[in-house]
Design a protein around this nucleic acid. Sequence first.
DNA 1: TCAAAAGTGTTATCCTTACACCCATGT
DNA 2: ACATGGGTGTAAGGATAACACTTTTGA
Lengths: 329, 329
Amino acid sequence: MGGGGDQGGRESRVRVDLTAVVIAMRDGEPHVLTVANDGASGVALPFGPLQAGHPTLQTGLRRWVEDLTHRKLGYVEQLYTFADHAPFQPNADHGADHQTISIAYLALAASPEDSATLQGRWRRWYGFFPWEDRRGGGPAARAHLLERLFAWAEAQRDAGDADCVERVRLAFGADGAAWDEERALERYEMLYEADLAPEAALDLGLEPSAAANGMPGLPMFADHRRILATAISRLRAKIKYRPVLFELMPAAFTLTNLQRTAEALSGVPLHKQNFRRLVAQQGLVEDTGAMATGTGGRPAKLVRFRREVTVERPAPGVRLRATRRGSYP
Amino acid sequence: MGGGGDQGGRESRVRVDLTAVVIAMRDGEPHVLTVANDGASGVALPFGPLQAGHPTLQTGLRRWVEDLTHRKLGYVEQLYTFADHAPFQPNADHGADHQTISIAYLALAASPEDSATLQGRWRRWYGFFPWEDRRGGGPAARAHLLERLFAWAEAQRDAGDADCVERVRLAFGADGAAWDEERALERYEMLYEADLAPEAALDLGLEPSAAANGMPGLPMFADHRRILATAISRLRAKIKYRPVLFELMPAAFTLTNLQRTAEALSGVPLHKQNFRRLVAQQGLVEDTGAMATGTGGRPAKLVRFRREVTVERPAPGVRLRATRRGSYP
DNA sequence: TCAAAAGTGTTATCCTTACACCCATGT
DNA sequence: ACATGGGTGTAAGGATAACACTTTTGA
């Protein structure tokens, strides 16, 4: 065989891993499934060597994660295939002729109520990316982060990268620039570049405790935080044009529930009336007849997802748009 | 190590291939780089075993393809990672314990004027997907294709898949439904399911000559046509929100050139005035001062891409919208 | 002089955004 | 009564889609 030739180099052993980003809502917050890891950097995403015996990668991953979580997965999508995280990663398992490739998948699960039989642990995703949550307002810690980032960017500019300061400004919505919630991956990569992610410091050979000092967000094993950032970016983009949001909802929910979920995932506050109109207009939900019992005010209608829209409409999603002025009224 | 456990099965040898979809414009038509293949099904995309020795997959692929084409690549993006194409693929190289994984990349190259030193051959991409070109109008062959597709879909419906006919209608824009040029992959997969792609017939063990009889579009080696369909879908989506179109243009071009390129890639005719306004409004191009010499009518201004927009704007692209009424005036 | 392509001005329509307001329930 | 959250109507603004029209060259 051999149609195209080589990529210039000698052949080598390749290890192929599957890595899963499993997302579910708990208490109105997005959570990600993590597992304990023997290595130094505690928290990891579920991962393991690729196994044969499944017709496709996707079905293999689905079965594996369903075994892990003991619940049906609603939605599975391939995220990205990562090779070595960085050229200078001195990990023992990543020797010169033993490259590791990880094929990462995003999976959405319905809200887990009991985590009794679960292997692993659900963790709030904003624990890993506190700067990605722009609902609350509190720009206290954010100011500190931006200060350090701009210090790095100015050093880069002086070292020849003219646009670096501007790129930081745009990516982080600083100084009048608009915040784009979909650029979560870009932001993480900038922080990594600026040595503001402990993983980067670890890769450079520093001690974990020293490295994590003052760094924003919990670190993860290897490049798992980058994979999670990829998942967040993808999911935030996807809910706008595909009805994946409903894979994270219970069978019946109120419109406010739905809005809170969309807000929690995208990390920005949404405009109530417009959100409702868009959902109604697109025919994404239908009444169940039941009402939500006392949540503090007037009882809300319980609605359910209209499965038919998956066939009907070409690209139905929750087109969310952040309100310009601050957070909740 | 070992965080997540296995996916249930025994370990096996895995072969990892890189596959490249290299796109360039020639004579106003999008072309893809192909190589001759020793196997039965002639045409293939450039592919080869993954080699170690590059810091990232992306840089490795870039260097490899640049060697192959003898020109600089403008844009490289990972497309998807494919495992076995179908469960019933009886290919000799795909034994039970020798799975092949191919990581596919999309690359854009500037227009090649001389193909002298080239290893491989440029082929018009609509040769592989004639139904994806909706510029010309001529719905003659399309009607025949739709007829066969609907016959299959109705059989599926009778076999229990209730929505199948409706899915075909929506995917192919038949019977009043809107044509969505981005759904090229979905369309190819439907044709494959319906045994209207020769590859599907080959997988089932039929003879190539018999299989290709009356099938639309040139077949390709293994699942390469699926990979190309993935690339087309991705590229058609991308040009709307990222300025990748300009990677395929020469240094100076006219606005009509640009529009013809956008139309050729997306396969639909565009509205001239609105296209121009959008390009101008977003500041994507600037005058060079020179004029295009006689192309049959009034000479057009030559413009060039404003590289600055890559930094300036968060998501600049050519938002194209098909005109409702037919093709060119 | 005519065909062909470049380039401009203007209007109707839709979608988005935001405002203000009313409804129903628990305390 | 009033606080809290659910739910609706409507006007201002901007972006889009389409129209008709003028300009400049080559044959």
